[in-house]
Design a protein around this nucleic acid. Structure first.
Lengths: 212, 212
DNA sequence: AAATAGTATTGATATAGATCAACCGGACTA
DNA sequence: TAGTCCGGTTGATCTATATCAATACTATTT
């Protein structure tokens, strides 16, 4: 848009860089108003990273050095409990943040595993870079605070849901809130996220489709 | 301690004011290092409030105008689900914060009820006061960020626990993490917090005490 | 094209925990 | 002093969901 008078080669480079931050720009803009210049100043704090399907961003025991914003692809974070069962704590599609904030800030080893479910393109940022970026662009404080608050609310609601709903109700709630995740993620992972066995989810789905 | 050379009357007033903020001071000091002067500057942003047992700090449908720090007493926040069942989202004893941050910042009506379980002494602070206080004492930003992070971690762990543990394991975990809450809160509320019926909790306790 | 690993379905059976119901003891309160 | 409320216990029964096991399908690797 504002690229009049620059060579086509440079234009392409700039265009790519913008495309790379497309989702992040959308995410920030949806929560606060930020000028294009401020946003340009934010870019250098991030590092692009691609992950192939099944690669890990973080493994249990590692210290999380970055949090990641998902520009493209899909990831999950999960823990393994004492009985050896996996529990999916979070999915992240385009426009979501994922990482272990606690490990990032405390320097303690993480209890999570974060794995790409599809080939993914991420924007990483370190704890130090976040500090510096917030120092330099204080408006972004609000963006991150809103993110944190929203995740707290989502987490509390999910907890209440897990305590009060039947398996069928949990699944229907999931369809309503995250239809896109249902589409892209294997069914047994949805089951793990909802705290039920794959068999139970399969039966529930059968019942629902017959019912409709 | 640092009150040499002042009249005994003034001493008492200062002593009371300090006593009123005792827990808050301890909480802040445990997470960041703050000078006594900075802390003194923080005090005016708070408002003291006493609540008798069974009184409410917030009721579903109200907009949360403050968050509260508990200097003394015990509170709970809970929601009522579609089936009319109460679910306790949080307890708060001395040294804990309680409130609906989401409602506070968005201005939307709260979905929570916050009730005193004992006669309690609170320090309230409004959204605007928090902003101003953080502006004036930026060090406190870190304090609040640590609080938020810790609650996220606790909440995620509680969620995984609720998905993976048996009722007995959940109760034992609760005893380990919050022995003080077990002591002071009616048993059926513990059951509600853990997502089981009072009957189940009663049976579990019986079994445990026999086992030991 | 064959082999393998990952994913989903279906059936039979077991069980943790919910539900319903009765009862008990203590603490307000009328 | 009796009466009502509240919290907790105990028993009998029911049910949603887990577990175990077999089979089929699909995608990926060789």
């Amino acid at each position: 848009m504002e690229f009049y008078g620059i060579s086509s080669k440079l234009y392409i480079i700039l265009y790519q860089r913008t495309a790379m931050f497309e989702q992040l720009f959308a995410s920030v803009s949806s929560k606060i108003s930020l000028t294009q210049e401020d946003f340009e100043r934010a870019k250098p704090y991030f590092m692009a990273k691609k992950l192939r399907k099944k690669q890990y961003l973080l493994q249990e025991g590692d210290v999380g050095k970055h949090v990641a914003f998902v520009e493209k692809g899909a990831l999950r974070s999960y823990t393994i409990d004492d009985k050896g069962n996996e529990h999916i704590v979070q999915f992240a599609l385009e426009g979501w943040w994922i990482g272990d904030n606690y490990s990032l800030y405390t320097g303690e080893p993480s209890t999570y595993n974060i794995e790409a479910l599809e080939d993914s393109e991420l924007l990483l940022i370190s704890a130090v870079s976040i500090e510096q970026m917030l120092e330099s662009i204080p408006k972004l404080e609000k963006y991150f605070r809103i993110l944190l608050q929203n995740s707290m609310v989502a987490l509390q609601r999910r907890l209440v849901a897990s305590l009060s709903l039947t398996s069928e109700e949990k699944y229907k709630r999931m369809i309503k809130i995250y239809p896109d995740i249902i589409q892209r993620v294997p069914q047994h992972m949805i089951a793990s996220y909802l705290g039920m066995t794959p068999e139970t989810l399969s039966r529930i789905r059968k019942q629902i489709t017959i019912g409709q």
